[in-house]
């Protein structure tokens, strides 16, 4: 972790962001990559500003579940091809009422990322109705599966038939194999 970098464009951009928006924390992970924690109200303006200043590509939108803090952290990953710099914006939203305003009118490609985040975490993106449709999990009938309180093994045991073996493997707890 670094506090600053010599890479052209990085420090300037961070200073601009700090001056304009409610930036909570900035960490440089690499020379050309910074994590910026923002207040969620500022995200759309910050993204618009970044897009106007070279960051034309949205590489990913994803989410992290923090069940103890009762928050979801949304991650927006953007890239500037002219300088090779990457910024990762992180905002916190309420876990119980997981809602956020869509960014599809800034980055059109977010349409499918938001759909995925909705499917795996249950976050609703206002303004992107297509995000409510199913994507990978067809006819899903349980909690969104990437939430930390979802028990994958219990679901698998309940839903899928397991093969039964007459011999039990591993009951002896790794008895040493005898060589002759």
């Amino acid at each position: 972790m670094m506090n600053s970098t010599n890479r052209p464009g990085m420090n300037e951009m961070v200073n601009e962001l700090k001056a304009r928006f409610n930036v909570e924390e900035v960490t440089f992970v690499q020379d050309h990559e910074a994590h910026v924690d923002l207040h969620r109200k500022d995200l759309h303006e910050a993204l618009t500003y970044m897009k106007q200043n070279g960051f034309r590509q949205l590489s990913a939108v994803t989410c992290i579940d923090w069940p103890n803090e009762k928050i979801f952290q949304l991650i927006f990953n953007i890239y500037d091809w002219s300088k090779g710099n990457r910024f990762i914006f992180r905002v916190k939203i309420d876990r119980e009422e997981a809602m956020f305003t869509t960014i599809t009118n800034i980055y059109g490609g977010a349409k499918y990322y938001e759909r995925e985040v909705h499917e795996f975490f249950g976050v609703v993106f206002e303004g992107n109705d297509s995000a409510l449709k199913q994507l990978f999990l067809e006819q899903w009938d349980d909690l969104p599966p990437l939430r930390k309180d979802f028990d994958s093994r219990a679901y698998s045991d309940r839903k899928y038939v397991k093969r039964e073996y007459k011999t039990s493997f591993g009951e002896k707890g790794g008895e040493p194999f005898e060589r002759n």
């Binding site: 990978f136 999990l137 349980d142 599966p145 979802f150 994958s152 093994r153 679901y155 698998s156 045991d157 839903k159 899928y160 038939v161 397991k162 093969r163």
Partner: peptide, 18 residues
Amino acid sequence: LNGGIYHDSHAVINQLDQ
């Protein structure tokens, strides 16, 4: 055959011959 290393995943089936 039996799910392999994904035997406890929510996403994949375990026993195809079913």
